[in-house]
């Protein structure tokens, strides 16, 4: 993730037009995609898991996403930004899978349990562990409250660092709609965080 967005200075600003991707991501060919795979595949898997609500389904969707990406990457125009394009393919695959299998209910508890296991295995301070647990719980709960498209937009913006003008064509929305949708999604996330902290103290 750091390879694409740096250490915060390269991350998208609030305008959403200051994404500075690593130079390797500007080339749009098979070799670049191969070299990026190790970094981007876990992110795409997480994105698909958040969209589909099922880790196993997300694995299948990740494979399908990259199979399609590898088949088409050499035909892309050189100006194409590879990371947003791959996320666009992933979203399309998620929509197809949902359509094929019917509406998939998000299984939040399953995700939280898996995350708890991951938290417990890491050597961290109790405070860090508590904050990790809070972050996972709040995000999962907020995502579960969002409609699917708004959830996808929030994930692309806040989790994967895409700019507004990269999200717009990916979602098929205007730039202003992207901003409004993400703003409303962020409101839900903040309200969930308030609830969590209010309930926890």
């Amino acid at each position: 993730m750091r390879a694409f967005f740096g250490d915060g200075a390269d991350a998208p600003d609030a305008d959403g037009d200051a994404v500075t991707l690593a130079p390797s991501t500007t080339a749009c060919d098979r070799a670049t995609l191969v070299s990026m795979y190790g970094d981007i595949a876990p992110r795409v898997h997480r994105f698909l898991r958040d969209l589909l609500g099922d880790a196993t389904l997300a694995s299948d969707a990740t494979q399908e996403t990259f199979v399609r990406a590898f088949r088409r990457v050499d035909d892309l125009p050189r100006a194409t930004r590879l990371v947003p394009w791959v996320f666009g393919v992933a979203r399309f695959v998620a929509l197809e899978m949902r359509k094929a299998r019917g509406r998939v209910r998000r299984v939040i508890d399953d995700g939280v349990a898996a995350d708890d296991r991951a938290i417990d295995t890491q050597a961290r301070t109790p405070e860090d562990t508590l904050l990790d647990r809070e972050a996972v719980a709040v995000v999962e709960r907020a995502l579960g409250r969002l409609p699917e498209e708004r959830r996808a937009a929030l994930l692309l913006r806040c989790d994967h660092g895409l700019a507004y003008d990269e999200i717009a064509p990916l979602m098929g929305w205007s730039l202003s709609k992207v901003k409004v949708e993400i703003f409303r999604a962020r409101e839900v996330l903040r309200a969930t965080l308030q609830e969590y902290r209010g309930g926890g103290t």
Partner: peptide, 29 residues
Amino acid sequence: FHDPDEAVERALFERRARVQGGAPGVPSL
């Protein structure tokens, strides 16, 4: 939309991503 609080959301997601770091189920290259 210039609200600097977006950093809060991003920090939440970043922490969550770190926790889920080595997600199993990612197909090999």
